[in-house]
């Protein structure tokens, strides 16, 4: 189980990485390689060239800029888990990071790689959507910002254009009154999620953002989730959570299997309960 041959480039900076991405044949960007590696080994993917961006210092840069934490795309799950970057989410990202796959995978897997891969089951896809993060994308034409909620088009499909790479994730500082809940359902520790519920509920502001993830498509994002809580977001949001509304939401989103809906609603209810705890 060895990959088909590929050429390898390790560019000096983002500009040369973008130039390399415009090279001949099929070019794949690789960061930690924890998703691409298995597919290369299985020969499901056989690019002509791999562009390794993990040497780029710009992509490992982290800073708090105003009300946002800007995290370079090549920051790893373990970097977040271990607190090597500032915490603006009161531990939420740290907890999510610590439950991604396994430690050895987290030591190389990156947030940028995970998001670029656009796997619906990946934790950051749902987490960043719920945290109202913005993604900074860069191509030879320049940079653009895309809200995480608009990034995914479907399973393994994002708005990333050919020749464009994810440069950084911008995570807003979480408000002190906001409550966070994140629950996923996996058959085994570290395995991919069958259902994800991510909620950011701010009873003081009367706002809630709800994400139903791992739905085999782009996550279902409810920006103004009052309807899930009987019309308004208050401190008793846990008891106000209306599973029937969630079920209807999933039906409308095309989830026709009752067991699937049951699982997702259950996980969402538990995420809400975690936020209330």
């Amino acid at each position: 189980m060895k990959p088909a041959p590929f050429a390898y480039e390790r560019p000096r900076d983002v500009a040369s990485a973008l130039a390399a991405m415009a090279g001949d044949g099929v070019v794949k960007v690789m960061a930690g390689g924890q998703s691409l590696g298995p597919m290369l080994n299985l020969r499901l993917v056989a690019p002509d060239t791999i562009v390794d961006i993990t040497g780029l210092a710009e992509l490992k840069h982290v800073e708090v800029a105003g009300e946002e934490l800007v995290i370079g795309a090549c920051v790893t799950h373990a970097d977040i888990e271990d607190g090597r970057i500032p915490d603006v989410t009161r531990g939420a990202m740290q907890r999510v990071a610590s439950a991604i796959a396994y430690r050895a995978v987290r030591n190389r897997g990156t947030i940028g790689g995970s998001l670029s891969h656009a796997d619906p089951s990946a934790d950051w896809v749902s987490t960043f959507a719920a945290l109202c993060a913005t993604l900074s994308l860069r191509s030879a034409k320049g940079a653009r910002l895309v809200a995480m909620k608009d990034f995914m088009l479907g399973a393994l499909e994002s708005v990333l254009q050919p020749g464009e790479m994810l440069e950084a994730v911008r995570v807003p500082v979480m408000s002190p009154s906001a409550r966070w809940g994140y629950v996923k359902s996996c058959r085994k520790t570290g395995e991919f999620a069958h259902a994800i519920g991510a909620v950011l509920i701010d009873p003081e502001a009367g706002r809630a953002r709800v994400v139903i993830g791992a739905v085999e498509a782009a996550p279902i994002i409810v920006d103004n989730a009052e309807e899930l809580f009987g019309g308004r977001i208050t401190n008793d949001f846990k008891s106000r959570f209306d599973a029937r509304v969630a079920d209807t939401l999933l039906s409308k989103a095309g989830m026709s299997d009752a067991a699937d809906r049951h699982i997702h609603v259950t996980i969402l209810r538990r995420a809400v309960a975690e936020a209330a705890a």
Binding site: P5, Y8, T54, G55, R84
Partner: peptide, 28 residues
Amino acid sequence: GRKVLGPAGSGHKACVSSQKLMPAQPAV
């Protein structure tokens, strides 16, 4: 014991110039 950011193993040879390395033989 890890203190730096980024994938373990990365960043030691931040190369000064891009290198394009051809495979031993063409794919298929």
